[in-house]
Design a protein around this nucleic acid. Sequence first.
DNA 1: CAGGTTTGAAACAATTCCTGACAAAAGTGC
DNA 2: GCACTTTTGTCAGGAATTGTTTCAAACCTG
Lengths: 228, 228
Amino acid sequence: MPEKILVIDDDEATVQLLSILLERHGYEVIKAYRADEGLRKAYRSQPNLVLLDVMMPDMDGWEVCRRLRELSDVPIIFLSARGEVRDVVKGLEMGADDYIIKPYDNDELVARVRAHLRRSPGPTVSEELVFDGGQFRINFLNREVRVKSRLVHLTPKEFSLLGVLVRNAGRVITRAELVREAWGPEYADAIDSLKLYIHYLRQKIETNPQRPEYILTSRGVGYRFAGH
Amino acid sequence: MPEKILVIDDDEATVQLLSILLERHGYEVIKAYRADEGLRKAYRSQPNLVLLDVMMPDMDGWEVCRRLRELSDVPIIFLSARGEVRDVVKGLEMGADDYIIKPYDNDELVARVRAHLRRSPGPTVSEELVFDGGQFRINFLNREVRVKSRLVHLTPKEFSLLGVLVRNAGRVITRAELVREAWGPEYADAIDSLKLYIHYLRQKIETNPQRPEYILTSRGVGYRFAGH
DNA sequence: CAGGTTTGAAACAATTCCTGACAAAAGTGC
DNA sequence: GCACTTTTGTCAGGAATTGTTTCAAACCTG
């Protein structure tokens, strides 16, 4: 079966051109014209690679990239008309694998797609969409968290932070790393906020926030999610 | 242990600049000024990534890339002043992972290096993460220490010091070295505190702190952790 | 503009760290 | 073995750091 490439871009013409190009090279193309549609299709069709536009009306590409990374390790290539170095760096730091500036050359694009697919371990895409720690469940696709089967409402930042902790369950993550993962590389100084959000999360998911059983402090280093 | 990057380029100035840049970001740089030298050093030092110039007097970069690929799957990034699409495509088709055109931006180069290193498997960390000495177990991932299966709480400094001792189990480490490793190079005068912390640790992990069985004194030199 | 969300600053609480003094033990020469 | 010196171990309390909580202002977003 051919390798599947998901193209997410609000510009229909671009999607069309990319489809033709990629299909000519033997790939199967899945098309999405909006960010949320892209995420849903990523989940459903398990693509081997994602081509992602940076600017879209409903949600920017950065956010899509972040959420995709929560779901899987699929290779992500940004496509953007904005070619400033800071954007490229931002995209790569955010977990993307490459950043191609429009207008791109068809051959180069295909070559880069191929290079990344070559590395990619195969259709081992989305692994655990749900973390189940007995009393505690988190579903990364619909962003639901349940404690003792009670649904807990989390804000975006709260969910993002909790996600980083859960995906690294069992190991201590430094504050700096947590901030980098949950806020993005450009918020190195958000450590104050981090403490707050740890507090919020504990209020929401811990039975007794004073004696946390999930989100544990590692003094002088960071936090870790108990590996049940 | 820092990740190793092999830089192969016949232009000494370029190599020098790259070294400074990469070392500032915490990488260890191995330098090679000729193609054959580069291949030899790749073989000997097992780099985690290779930065490769396309044009060199003795053998061109393409050939180096091909031969490297015969030896290993190490990520390869081409660096070249020739930015024509056909060269980029050729490089990527040849097995390289990325192609950066000179003059490059420092931040972008580092970001791309990071992106590729993130993908690469990493030098089998798993065994190093837990030390199991029968009655004594230390888990560097979640920073837990257990003696006779009892969980022992350690402060950051205590853990750091114990970590150095355990990682060098069986070997005597000088006081100066211990301080340097556990406190950092700038605290050369913390030798006074060292004996304090040795004391704390013994109180916490030894059955009989007066007759230590784990943390042993080597009079006039330093301490060592019993190797079991 | 009203709601929830995010941020910064600061008070408060707890722990971790260091200082200096002294006690104990190990090595040394007689 | 006995004094002496050197090195290592122990102790206590206060300084410094780190973590938690509260409060209020800024910020979106619909």
